[in-house]
Amino acid sequence: MEENIKEKRSEKEEAREELLQLVLFRLGEEEFGVNILQAREIEKLDQGLTRVPKAPLFVEGVINLRGEIIPIVDLRKRFGLTLPPLGYDSRVIIVEVRGAPVGMLVDAVEEVVRIPVSAVEPPPPITKGVDAQYLAGVAKVGDRLIVLLNLDRALSPEESQELAEAELGDG
């Protein structure tokens, strides 16, 4: 039994190596993607956020998702992008970071695409204003340039502290 499952898994992994399934979303005008396997669900933000005092700046607050408390992160703040106010198309993509659920606020969720793994290239130092440390790579799809996020890094609360300290040090 177990061996069977393992085989199936490795088959899946092989398949994944050929094709990558991405959820594409927008932050401001820029297009980003995350591996669909990391996204748990996509929700509308139709309830009030509860602000958490003393939380990292880019943590907007927490919501109740069917009895589970989920922190909501504003990536635009994290990446230091200029922010238009959240609108009708805004969504929360629930992902898991080191086993803990986190909601990413995005301006819109666009589509799910499949791209060949070989199309992914390492990110340049700064892409669309985002530091390469938060990125897993970039992929060209037709004439679109999709930026793949490294979720563990992009959402890591610890990194932010270093960042904040670095900023403090600079200032």
Binding site: V52, P71, R98, G99, P101, P157
Partner: peptide, 17 residues
């Protein structure tokens, strides 16, 4: 009492949600 979760970890002054 619900935990704020491991992502936020311990925030001083907040016991939970």
């Amino acid at each position: 009492i619900k935990s704020l979760g491991s992502y936020l970890g311990n925030i001083p002054g907040i016991a939970g949600a």
